[in-house]
Design a protein around this nucleic acid. Structure first.
Lengths: 188, 188, 188, 188
DNA sequence: TATGAATGAGCATTCATTCAT
DNA sequence: TATGAATGAATGCTCATTCAT
């Protein structure tokens, strides 16, 4: 039942945005009563947080694997980045309503969700920063800044790629361009 | 008074998001009565639209100037991009609550504002695309895709730069990194 | 200016009803500012009352003339009644929006207007009652009750005749039927 | 609960008129919360419509029975009319606030309720018209006009009889006078 | 454990009325 | 005297949340 509710929540948040989504509507779509929804989720907000937590876990798994690969200087930068981006967009595309629901637009409507990111992001920043410093084919510079920019670019443009691509532009082309953007940015 | 109201609206939207902002609160912060607010703005929505329209005009002015410069092959790509990004971030920084209020997060909560962008963006895409094709120092490729990616990157990362920069990273450094990201992406 | 305002008020009350009519709208239609309206009329209500008072004066003039005629046993009952009804409907038809505005529907929405009628009606009741008793061609009975019923019938059906006549029924015929209704009711 | 709400609505509409009645007040008087009111009635308007529909059904039952009796020439006109009027006033008197709430004054304030009447009335008009034509003791004439006048008189004066009877006049006397009014109008 | 009727604080919006100019 | 911008109390309606069954 928890899964049904979460799925219904994701779909409805994605379609209507957080504010216009009512808990009654979510419950109805999930085929349960509001009462049951509140048995498992204390707030409307908690639905979003649970969705987010789950998604984060998946994303971080993908990223962690990518970071391992990036740590190996034998594997070309471009190849690792392409793999990361491919897996990330695949993840988003797998459950579009979920990722749409978790888009910045929806998230920022809900209070206190913002913080969740920060911690993990700070840790990541450090790891990526060191990693860049250690790769011989990555150019010199303020690696913390580079890591931060890298992270943002990947996060934001990946979402854009899956959800808001302008009409008439090929998806694969765009993905490849994104690979180029990042590779050219990092390499010497 | 209209200006007071708009300023109050921007600040409140920025702080609480569209949904949690009430028209009464805006009026109170502006030091006027709700009635007065409704004398000048027919809907809560219209406040956002007015804010958006004004901001859009400024942004487009900056962009148009940048595009002119980019059309001149005598001026180095890097220099033009740096100027564009500097001006754009300056614009955002000039009235932070305004730009925060107009962040995607806030905008997407309000119906029917989304569309406003689309038209102009399509036109821009075409212009930038041609421009890239004509610059000798820009590499070959699907210029439409490149233009689209370029636009998104500038838009999203500029906002991030001004509003969500992680603690401990120098602003100017980050701006320069962004210049590098774009220049390296475009040039041969 | 007072006349313009009253005319505008009558038209608007007639069209929208009392509740949906705003003082601003009345002022606009009269081509003056709300401020001016409030210079001459202390309340929204007072517009209705002034309209009512004026109309009442006219109605009572007609009725008083009719009562004089009715007091003369030489003039046939039917003739007097026909004259009264003709003049009354003419009065209503002369300024339809005025009488529509003063229809029970509109009046009862406004507080404290109801009372105005009562006094005069009580006086009338007495006069008509005596009059009926003195006419030889009027049948015996509780003349007060008859007078009351007579007054109501005339008042309500006259308004109906002018404003809500069902489609496909001739006006003149209906007026004549009303004459019959009353004549047959009163005469021996 | 629906019944409590309807009763409270009737009483409040009757006392204050439609416009000055608030849904919160109705809910309070019914001893429920506004939310509950809106669970069963989508609009303020729907309360009036539900009240009206129910009342209409009762009235039409009474009228239909009366029309059956009127169709039988063996039963004296006067007797049938007296029965109809007695039952009709009894109906109104049974729940005075209901009928007061449904008086023209209240109804016309609410949009879109007016139309409900019209249809049925047109049908009735036809039935009564034929009926009058077929009764040997009814005088000749434009029977459609007579039926229309008859209907109006009964409707309006019945309401008046129950709700606005002037002080000092006996109810029963007035009812009997009304019977006379109608009988004398119709018969040869 | 599941239900869904009931709750009521809260919101966008209107409009009679005032008052500085 | 005329204006109309400003006021703010009041209204219809929504929706997150509770709790008796």
């Amino acid at each position: 039942m928890v899964q049904d509710i979460l799925q219904a929540a994701a779909e409805t948040f994605a379609r209507l945005g957080y504010a216009r989504t009512t808990t009654n509507r979510i419950a109805a779509r999930a085929g349960v009563s509001v009462g049951s929804l509140y048995q498992y989720f204390p707030h409307k907000d908690s639905l979003l947080m649970r969705l987010l937590t789950g998604h984060h876990a998946e994303v971080h798994q993908v990223i962690d694997r990518a970071l391992e690969q990036l740590a190996d200087p034998g594997i070309p930068l471009e190849k690792s980045l392409r793999k990361l981006l491919t897996e990330l967009t695949a993840l988003h595309a797998a459950d579009p309503s979920l990722t749409k629901a978790l888009s910045a637009a929806v998230l920022r409507e809900s209070p206190a969700v913002d913080e969740l990111h920060k911690e993990q992001d700070v840790e990541h920043l450090q790891r990526v920063s060191t990693l860049l410093a250690e790769r011989p084919d990555v150019r010199q510079g303020d690696h913390r800044a580079m890591a931060a920019l890298l992270g943002q670019t990947i996060g934001q443009l990946t979402r854009w790629l899956v959800h808001d691509t302008p009409a008439g532009i090929d998806h694969t082309t765009l993905l490849e361009e994104l690979v180029q953007l990042l590779t050219r940015y990092l390499r010497k």
